[in-house]
Amino acid sequence: MSLSTHPLRAGLLVLAGATLISFAAVFARLANVEPTTSAFYRMLFGALGFILLISVQGRLREGFRRGWGSSGLIAIFFTADLWFWHRSIDYIGPGLATLLANFQVFVLTAVGVVWLRERLGWRFATGLALAMSGLWLLFGRDWAQLPPDYRLGIGFGLLTATAYAAYLLSLRGFQIREGGFRPETRLLQVSLWCVLMLGLLNLIEGHDFSIPDRQTLLSLIALGILCQVIGWLLITRGMPFLPAGLVGLLLLLQPSQSILWDVLIFGLRLSPLQITGALLALTGIYFGFRAASRRKLG
Protein backbone atom coordinates (compact mmCIF):
# COMPACT_ATOMS: atom_id res chain seq x y z
CA MET A 1 0.00 0.00 0.00
CA SER A 2 1.50 3.32 -1.01
CA LEU A 3 1.93 6.17 1.41
CA SER A 4 -0.69 8.23 -0.42
CA THR A 5 -3.36 5.62 0.27
CA HIS A 6 -2.34 4.61 3.80
CA PRO A 7 -5.41 4.73 6.08
CA LEU A 8 -3.61 6.81 8.72
CA ARG A 9 -2.50 9.38 6.17
CA ALA A 10 -5.94 9.43 4.56
CA GLY A 11 -7.58 9.87 7.96
CA LEU A 12 -5.28 12.77 8.81
CA LEU A 13 -6.10 14.43 5.48
CA VAL A 14 -9.86 14.21 6.13
CA LEU A 15 -9.37 15.34 9.74
CA ALA A 16 -7.35 18.38 8.65
CA GLY A 17 -9.85 19.22 5.91
CA ALA A 18 -12.85 18.95 8.25
CA THR A 19 -11.09 21.20 10.75
CA LEU A 20 -10.36 23.82 8.10
CA ILE A 21 -13.91 23.93 6.77
CA SER A 22 -15.25 24.13 10.34
CA PHE A 23 -13.86 27.69 10.32
CA ALA A 24 -15.85 28.69 7.22
CA ALA A 25 -18.81 30.08 9.16
CA VAL A 26 -16.42 31.77 11.60
CA PHE A 27 -14.62 33.63 8.81
CA ALA A 28 -17.96 34.58 7.24
CA ARG A 29 -19.11 36.01 10.58
CA LEU A 30 -15.83 37.92 11.09
CA ALA A 31 -16.12 39.61 7.69
CA ASN A 32 -17.78 43.01 8.12
CA VAL A 33 -19.72 42.87 4.86
CA GLU A 34 -23.19 41.80 3.73
CA PRO A 35 -23.86 38.04 3.50
CA THR A 36 -24.02 38.01 -0.31
CA THR A 37 -20.81 40.05 -0.49
CA SER A 38 -18.94 37.62 1.73
CA ALA A 39 -20.22 34.69 -0.34
CA PHE A 40 -19.05 36.48 -3.51
CA TYR A 41 -15.54 36.97 -2.18
CA ARG A 42 -15.44 33.40 -0.86
CA MET A 43 -15.96 32.13 -4.39
CA LEU A 44 -13.71 34.77 -5.97
CA PHE A 45 -10.73 33.95 -3.77
CA GLY A 46 -11.56 30.27 -4.06
CA ALA A 47 -11.53 30.52 -7.86
CA LEU A 48 -8.18 32.31 -7.76
CA GLY A 49 -6.84 29.51 -5.58
CA PHE A 50 -8.01 26.86 -8.06
CA ILE A 51 -6.55 28.87 -10.96
CA LEU A 52 -3.18 28.97 -9.19
CA LEU A 53 -3.34 25.24 -8.48
CA ILE A 54 -4.25 24.34 -12.05
CA SER A 55 -1.59 26.66 -13.50
CA VAL A 56 1.08 24.92 -11.41
CA GLN A 57 -0.18 21.40 -12.24
CA GLY A 58 -1.20 21.41 -15.89
CA ARG A 59 -2.66 17.89 -15.74
CA LEU A 60 -5.48 19.26 -13.58
CA ARG A 61 -6.79 21.28 -16.54
CA GLU A 62 -8.30 18.20 -18.19
CA GLY A 63 -11.79 18.99 -19.47
CA PHE A 64 -11.61 22.73 -18.76
CA ARG A 65 -12.93 23.75 -22.19
CA ARG A 66 -16.02 21.52 -21.89
CA GLY A 67 -18.95 21.21 -19.51
CA TRP A 68 -19.58 24.88 -18.79
CA GLY A 69 -23.34 24.47 -19.19
CA SER A 70 -23.60 21.65 -16.66
CA SER A 71 -21.23 23.49 -14.31
CA GLY A 72 -23.56 26.48 -14.53
CA LEU A 73 -26.48 24.34 -13.39
CA ILE A 74 -24.43 22.97 -10.50
CA ALA A 75 -23.44 26.53 -9.60
CA ILE A 76 -27.10 27.59 -9.31
CA PHE A 77 -27.56 25.16 -6.44
CA PHE A 78 -24.28 26.12 -4.77
CA THR A 79 -25.09 29.82 -5.12
CA ALA A 80 -28.41 29.18 -3.38
CA ASP A 81 -26.60 27.18 -0.70
CA LEU A 82 -24.21 30.07 0.02
CA TRP A 83 -26.94 32.71 -0.14
CA PHE A 84 -29.05 30.90 2.47
CA TRP A 85 -26.16 29.82 4.67
CA HIS A 86 -24.43 33.19 4.99
CA ARG A 87 -27.74 34.71 6.11
CA SER A 88 -28.32 31.90 8.57
CA ILE A 89 -24.87 32.61 10.04
CA ASP A 90 -25.83 36.25 10.54
CA TYR A 91 -29.11 35.39 12.30
CA ILE A 92 -28.28 32.36 14.48
CA GLY A 93 -24.48 32.22 14.54
CA PRO A 94 -21.80 30.05 12.90
CA GLY A 95 -22.25 26.93 15.04
CA LEU A 96 -25.98 26.34 14.73
CA ALA A 97 -26.07 27.46 11.09
CA THR A 98 -23.42 24.85 10.26
CA LEU A 99 -25.29 22.19 12.23
CA LEU A 100 -28.49 22.84 10.28
CA ALA A 101 -26.62 22.82 6.95
CA ASN A 102 -25.46 19.28 7.69
CA PHE A 103 -29.06 18.08 7.62
CA GLN A 104 -28.40 17.69 3.89
CA VAL A 105 -27.70 14.00 4.58
CA PHE A 106 -31.42 13.45 5.19
CA VAL A 107 -32.34 15.24 1.97
CA LEU A 108 -29.90 13.02 0.03
CA THR A 109 -31.47 9.87 1.45
CA ALA A 110 -35.01 11.16 0.89
CA VAL A 111 -34.17 11.75 -2.78
CA GLY A 112 -33.01 8.15 -3.01
CA VAL A 113 -36.32 6.98 -1.57
CA VAL A 114 -38.51 9.13 -3.84
CA TRP A 115 -36.41 9.05 -7.01
CA LEU A 116 -34.91 5.56 -6.94
CA ARG A 117 -37.68 3.88 -4.90
CA GLU A 118 -35.16 2.81 -2.28
CA ARG A 119 -36.33 1.42 1.04
CA LEU A 120 -35.75 3.32 4.27
CA GLY A 121 -33.24 1.50 6.43
CA TRP A 122 -32.94 1.58 10.19
CA ARG A 123 -29.99 3.97 10.01
CA PHE A 124 -32.06 6.63 8.27
CA ALA A 125 -35.05 6.14 10.56
CA THR A 126 -32.87 6.27 13.68
CA GLY A 127 -30.89 9.24 12.44
CA LEU A 128 -33.97 11.22 11.46
CA ALA A 129 -35.65 10.53 14.82
CA LEU A 130 -32.55 11.63 16.72
CA ALA A 131 -32.05 14.72 14.56
CA MET A 132 -35.68 15.83 14.87
CA SER A 133 -35.54 15.34 18.64
CA GLY A 134 -32.37 17.40 18.71
CA LEU A 135 -33.99 20.16 16.67
CA TRP A 136 -36.93 20.30 19.04
CA LEU A 137 -34.66 20.59 22.08
CA LEU A 138 -32.59 23.28 20.36
CA PHE A 139 -35.41 25.41 18.94
CA GLY A 140 -38.86 23.89 19.23
CA ARG A 141 -39.52 24.25 22.96
CA ASP A 142 -39.21 28.06 22.84
CA TRP A 143 -40.27 28.64 19.24
CA ALA A 144 -42.97 31.17 20.07
CA GLN A 145 -40.52 33.24 22.14
CA LEU A 146 -37.75 33.31 19.54
CA PRO A 147 -37.17 36.64 17.73
CA PRO A 148 -38.43 36.72 14.11
CA ASP A 149 -34.91 37.07 12.69
CA TYR A 150 -33.76 34.05 14.70
CA ARG A 151 -36.63 31.95 13.37
CA LEU A 152 -35.80 33.17 9.87
CA GLY A 153 -32.20 32.08 10.41
CA ILE A 154 -33.37 28.58 11.33
CA GLY A 155 -35.40 28.46 8.13
CA PHE A 156 -32.41 29.65 6.11
CA GLY A 157 -30.29 26.92 7.73
CA LEU A 158 -32.70 24.20 6.64
CA LEU A 159 -32.95 25.71 3.14
CA THR A 160 -29.14 25.60 3.08
CA ALA A 161 -29.31 21.86 3.70
CA THR A 162 -31.76 21.42 0.80
CA ALA A 163 -29.70 23.53 -1.62
CA TYR A 164 -26.46 21.82 -0.56
CA ALA A 165 -27.97 18.38 -1.16
CA ALA A 166 -29.06 19.50 -4.64
CA TYR A 167 -25.53 20.76 -5.28
CA LEU A 168 -23.97 17.45 -4.23
CA LEU A 169 -26.41 15.41 -6.31
CA SER A 170 -25.91 17.52 -9.44
CA LEU A 171 -22.13 17.57 -9.00
CA ARG A 172 -21.98 13.80 -8.62
CA GLY A 173 -24.44 13.21 -11.45
CA PHE A 174 -22.59 15.34 -14.00
CA GLN A 175 -19.20 13.97 -12.96
CA ILE A 176 -20.52 10.48 -13.70
CA ARG A 177 -22.22 11.42 -16.99
CA GLU A 178 -19.44 13.64 -18.36
CA GLY A 179 -16.18 11.75 -18.26
CA GLY A 180 -12.71 13.25 -18.57
CA PHE A 181 -13.16 15.90 -15.90
CA ARG A 182 -10.73 16.45 -13.08
CA PRO A 183 -12.56 17.42 -9.85
CA GLU A 184 -10.38 20.54 -9.59
CA THR A 185 -11.43 21.62 -13.09
CA ARG A 186 -15.12 21.13 -12.31
CA LEU A 187 -14.79 23.04 -9.03
CA LEU A 188 -13.04 25.91 -10.80
CA GLN A 189 -15.83 26.13 -13.38
CA VAL A 190 -18.48 26.06 -10.66
CA SER A 191 -16.57 28.69 -8.67
CA LEU A 192 -16.38 31.05 -11.66
CA TRP A 193 -20.11 30.65 -12.32
CA CYS A 194 -20.84 31.34 -8.63
CA VAL A 195 -18.70 34.49 -8.76
CA LEU A 196 -20.84 35.76 -11.63
CA MET A 197 -24.16 34.80 -10.01
CA LEU A 198 -23.32 36.12 -6.56
CA GLY A 199 -21.88 39.31 -8.05
CA LEU A 200 -25.15 39.95 -9.91
CA LEU A 201 -27.19 39.19 -6.78
CA ASN A 202 -25.02 41.56 -4.77
CA LEU A 203 -25.68 44.36 -7.27
CA ILE A 204 -29.42 43.62 -7.35
CA GLU A 205 -29.50 43.82 -3.54
CA GLY A 206 -27.85 47.25 -3.74
CA HIS A 207 -24.56 46.34 -2.05
CA ASP A 208 -21.11 47.41 -3.17
CA PHE A 209 -17.95 45.31 -3.22
CA SER A 210 -15.81 47.38 -0.87
CA ILE A 211 -13.76 45.60 1.78
CA PRO A 212 -13.83 47.93 4.79
CA ASP A 213 -10.90 46.74 6.90
CA ARG A 214 -7.96 44.33 7.20
CA GLN A 215 -9.92 41.87 9.37
CA THR A 216 -12.53 41.53 6.64
CA LEU A 217 -9.90 41.09 3.92
CA LEU A 218 -8.03 38.39 5.84
CA SER A 219 -11.29 36.65 6.77
CA LEU A 220 -12.47 36.57 3.15
CA ILE A 221 -9.11 35.30 1.89
CA ALA A 222 -9.08 32.58 4.54
CA LEU A 223 -12.70 31.69 3.69
CA GLY A 224 -11.84 31.29 0.01
CA ILE A 225 -8.39 29.70 0.18
CA LEU A 226 -8.28 27.71 3.43
CA CYS A 227 -11.90 26.52 3.47
CA GLN A 228 -13.09 26.54 -0.14
CA VAL A 229 -9.90 25.19 -1.72
CA ILE A 230 -7.49 23.54 0.70
CA GLY A 231 -10.09 22.12 3.12
CA TRP A 232 -12.15 20.38 0.45
CA LEU A 233 -9.09 19.20 -1.49
CA LEU A 234 -7.78 17.49 1.66
CA ILE A 235 -11.14 15.80 2.24
CA THR A 236 -11.55 14.62 -1.35
CA ARG A 237 -7.99 13.26 -1.39
CA GLY A 238 -8.47 11.24 1.79
CA MET A 239 -12.09 10.03 1.58
CA PRO A 240 -11.68 7.28 -1.07
CA PHE A 241 -9.27 5.32 1.15
CA LEU A 242 -11.36 5.22 4.33
CA PRO A 243 -14.43 3.21 5.36
CA ALA A 244 -17.70 5.16 5.25
CA GLY A 245 -18.21 4.96 9.01
CA LEU A 246 -14.85 6.56 9.75
CA VAL A 247 -15.42 9.25 7.12
CA GLY A 248 -18.75 10.04 8.74
CA LEU A 249 -17.16 10.42 12.17
CA LEU A 250 -14.38 12.63 10.82
CA LEU A 251 -16.75 14.84 8.84
CA LEU A 252 -18.89 15.20 11.96
CA LEU A 253 -16.03 17.25 13.35
CA GLN A 254 -17.03 20.11 11.05
CA PRO A 255 -20.36 21.01 12.72
CA SER A 256 -19.01 19.96 16.13
CA GLN A 257 -16.00 22.23 15.88
CA SER A 258 -18.07 25.06 14.39
CA ILE A 259 -20.23 25.00 17.52
CA LEU A 260 -17.07 24.98 19.66
CA TRP A 261 -15.61 27.99 17.80
CA ASP A 262 -18.95 29.78 18.20
CA VAL A 263 -18.76 29.22 21.96
CA LEU A 264 -15.11 30.28 22.24
CA ILE A 265 -15.06 33.21 19.80
CA PHE A 266 -18.60 34.60 19.73
CA GLY A 267 -19.84 33.60 23.18
CA LEU A 268 -22.57 31.17 22.15
CA ARG A 269 -24.39 29.94 25.24
CA LEU A 270 -26.51 26.81 25.21
CA SER A 271 -28.65 25.46 28.04
CA PRO A 272 -28.13 21.84 29.16
CA LEU A 273 -31.22 20.83 27.16
CA GLN A 274 -29.89 22.61 24.07
CA ILE A 275 -26.51 20.91 24.46
CA THR A 276 -28.37 17.60 24.62
CA GLY A 277 -30.28 18.63 21.50
CA ALA A 278 -27.06 19.45 19.65
CA LEU A 279 -25.56 16.08 20.60
CA LEU A 280 -28.70 14.26 19.46
CA ALA A 281 -28.68 16.16 16.17
CA LEU A 282 -25.00 15.37 15.59
CA THR A 283 -25.62 11.69 16.32
CA GLY A 284 -28.60 11.73 13.96
CA ILE A 285 -26.50 13.35 11.23
CA TYR A 286 -23.92 10.57 11.63
CA PHE A 287 -26.58 7.89 11.16
CA GLY A 288 -27.94 9.87 8.22
CA PHE A 289 -24.49 9.97 6.65
CA ARG A 290 -24.17 6.21 7.01
CA ALA A 291 -27.55 5.77 5.34
CA ALA A 292 -26.67 8.12 2.48
CA SER A 293 -23.27 6.48 1.97
CA ARG A 294 -24.96 3.16 1.25
CA ARG A 295 -26.84 4.64 -1.71
CA LYS A 296 -25.43 5.47 -5.11
CA LEU A 297 -27.32 8.46 -6.43
CA GLY A 298 -26.69 9.89 -9.85
Rank of each mutant, 00 (worst) to 15 (best):
L3F: 07
T5K: 14
H6M: 07
H6D: 14
H6I: 10
G11L: 04
L12R: 15
L13P: 00
L13F: 09
V14F: 00
L15R: 10
A18Q: 01
A25Y: 01
V26G: 01
F27R: 03
A28Y: 04
R29F: 05
P35I: 12
T36V: 02
T36D: 09
S38I: 07
F45V: 00
F50H: 04
I51D: 01
L53Y: 04
Q57M: 15
R61G: 08
E62F: 03
R65H: 14
R65I: 12
G69A: 14
I74W: 01
T79F: 00
A80M: 12
D81R: 01
D81Q: 14
L82M: 13
W83Y: 14
H86F: 04
R87E: 07
R87T: 09
P94H: 06
G95A: 02
N102Q: 09
V105F: 00
W115T: 11
R117E: 15
R119Q: 15
F124C: 03
A125P: 00
G127T: 05
L128P: 00
L130N: 05
M132Q: 14
M132P: 08
L135I: 06
W136G: 10
W136I: 05
L138I: 09
F139T: 00
G140A: 04
D142Q: 09
L146F: 07
Y150S: 06
I154R: 09
G155R: 06
G157F: 09
A163T: 01
S170C: 07
L171C: 10
L171K: 06
R172V: 10
F174W: 13
I176A: 13
I176E: 13
R177W: 02
E178V: 08
E178N: 14
G179N: 11
G180E: 08
E184A: 06
T185S: 13
T185N: 11
T185L: 10
L187W: 10
L188E: 07
V190M: 02
L192F: 08
V195T: 03
M197D: 10
L198K: 03
N202G: 06
L203A: 15
E205T: 09
G206L: 03
D208A: 04
F209H: 15
F209T: 10
S210Q: 15
I211Y: 06
I211W: 05
D213V: 07
D213F: 09
R214C: 05
Q215F: 14
T216A: 04
S219N: 04
A222Q: 02
A222H: 02
I225H: 05
I225P: 01
L226F: 01
V229I: 11
G231V: 07
W232F: 05
I235W: 02
I235Y: 05
R237H: 11
G238D: 10
M239T: 14
G245I: 06
G248Q: 04
L249K: 15
L250M: 12
S256V: 04
S258I: 09
S258G: 12
I259T: 13
L260Q: 11
V263I: 13
L264I: 03
I265Q: 02
G267M: 13
R269N: 06
P272I: 13
L273T: 13
G277F: 00
A278H: 01
A278S: 07
L280P: 00
I285V: 02
A291R: 11
S293F: 07
R295F: 08
K296V: 08
K296Y: 13
